[in-house]
Write a protein that binds this DNA or RNA. Structure first.
Lengths: 335, 335
DNA sequence: CGCCCTATGTGAATCGTTTCAGTTTATCGT
DNA sequence: ACGATAAACTGAAACGATTCACATAGGGCG
């Protein structure tokens, strides 16, 4: 092992200046000591390249300046972008990010969050897959937590960013209905894990209202996960006339599958998504989707957490409204 | 503030069992104490839901089980995917990830890495923008560091994953040359920050060899960053016949710009990328690019770091070879 | 029976920082 | 000039886990 030089400590500064460790600690934050001392300590600290050890500080009970971010699956492009937006937003508040990725497994979520909390993060931002169980009460009462689109059983929240799934699903289904589609396959991630997510419930309810024949199909998150499934659905005898993907990432895989089978979208079949990823306007054909503003989401979530940490216990809940974005991947149902 | 119940500590277990803190510490790792004691301690620990505080452990000097990952810009889709692949790979080794994002600013990189190191990560994985300066010597001799495609001035590395940029650039330029293109605009990120990156140097050299007129243009990373720039380039009187984007993300923005101006790709102009993001085969038209295997990259980088942490000081360097992927976005130069 | 060795356990220091509770000066008002 | 008070600074105890050095007891063996 290479010789490992230690980083400078407060103790070294104390020796260098002839002061006590205590005095140096105060001086570094400019309190309780004379201006002359502060200056002298600063000079030595700068020269040594000193910076306080966040680990020691955390142990003593202070803030770590780090927020844990837990996402359901980084394989999903939208969530990748969300993670980026959140990280960027946190940075504007001088906060750092520890990112964890449940990788599509709801059973992992609580464990990962606990691990994050054990790292002494100041707060948690959780975009969960779904209420797969576990009791978040203990965790969330110890660590301020803001959720993004999802429920955490037993959790006591510092804030909540919800998506109006009902309206979003409704608009999309009405759009498809108005184009004449009656038999629709809905590709959803995480159905097995939590069969009664609000999104799926909304799909069932609205489909019933509109008289649509909607089959909900379990689907892996990633591009490569949705393609084979799409192939299977597309090759059925009674192929649906439209496929409603509950994430744009899934839709990309479906588009790819259609291409492989020589199916023209939207002539032969309509394919629509549900997050409106930035690339959805560039794929072929440009994807009809429902937009949930990533920037607004990230800003709200981070804002709630920062407010809470600053002691503001106000009303920390917002519902992000969907925006229907009709592009070229949806068209009249083939007769 | 809500009552904040403390997490269980080793001390509580000691009181509960009537043992000393020391004995409990040993018992928890199954050393030096009688089997009966181990069992008793385990029982109490389980019942209390005890897990060791990573912060305290880190302070004492042990491993944290956390790796810092620093990427040049999470706004880039390829780097997003890389970050995901790396995180996933780290997880298979039982390691956690702290992700930092320099957001396109090379001047931030060293500071962010230092901050990561101060968090007591066991190692660092750095995919830098470029050698914007700073001295990485002190940091890297304290914290094992593996680079992914980039040089860190003064760094002493635990491993290195390099991309054979020269070959990649060469193949792409020859491809364009063979299609009759002679006037090419090269859109690069981070030119200002480090004008002599290996990639740009390779472009200049190979262009000279082939007799190509290549202009290198500074470009922001993101989709929205490259679009306006593309518009500017495309509206010139002596418009280049091909645009070579040094990242697929940039190419996506350019494609968007072309569409706005009513330019057909590749009939009116060819557009090619340089990472081969998974979505590049789905955009319209499918993008010609150069593939660097993200999985191989992530696996190699993480492998090097894990080996190093295990004490293996072997040869930790690999060069990832490019694979030219010709799709539909490149065609014969218009006459 | 006396000696040493092992098994099992404990006390205390350590990591780097913060902070409570003092202690020493110097200064001020009366 | 004297006690009160404030300013400047220090000691020591936390935070939670690890680990070195030591203590105690019992067992084995000549």
């Amino acid at each position: 092992m290479a010789a490992t030089p230690k980083r400078p400590t407060i103790k070294q500064i104390a020796e260098e200046t002839g002061l006590s460790v205590t005095a140096v600690s105060y001086a570094l934050r400019g309190e309780r000591v004379s201006a002359a001392t502060i200056e002298r300590v600063q000079a030595v600290a700068d020269q040594l390249g000193y910076s306080a050890d966040p680990v020691a500080r955390a142990l003593r009970g202070g803030r770590t300046g780090t927020i844990g971010v837990l996402v359901g699956s980084l394989a999903d492009f939208w969530q990748q972008t969300l993670a980026h937006a959140v990280q960027r937003e946190l940075r504007t508040h001088g906060l750092h990010t520890i990112l964890a990725d449940a990788d599509g497994d709801p059973a992992e979520e609580l464990a990962l969050a606990a691990r994050l909390a054990a790292q002494r993060v100041d707060g948690l931002l959780v975009a969960p897959i779904g209420p797969a169980g576990g009791d978040w009460a203990k965790l969330t009462e110890r660590t301020p937590t803001v959720t993004i689109s999802g429920r955490l059983p037993g959790a006591e929240l510092a804030g909540e960013v919800a998506f109006d799934q009902t309206t979003g699903v409704g608009e999309m289904l009405r759009h498809l209905h108005s184009l004449g589609h009656r038999r629709i396959a809905v590709l959803s991630w995480a159905v097995e894990a939590s069969p009664d997510r609000p999104t799926e419930r909304a799909v069932r309810e609205q489909a019933a209202t509109l008289g649509l024949d909607c089959e909900i199909v379990q689907c892996a998150y990633s591009l490569d996960g949705s393609r084979p499934l799409a192939l299977e659905v597309l090759e059925r005898a009674d192929r649906p006339t439209a496929i409603f993907c509950l994430s744009d990432s899934i839709a990309y895989g479906v588009l790819h599958g259609c291409r492989e089978l020589g199916l023209q979208v939207p002539r032969d079949i309509s394919v629509v998504g549900f997050d409106d990823h930035p690339l959805s306007r560039l794929v072929d054909p440009p994807l009809t989707s429902v937009n949930w503003s990533i920037d607004r989401t990230a800003r709200a979530a981070v804002g709630f957490l920062v407010d809470y940490l600053a002691g503001d216990r106000g009303d920390h809940r917002v519902v992000i409204a969907p925006t229907m974005v009709v592009r070229d991947s949806s068209g009249p149902a083939p007769s």
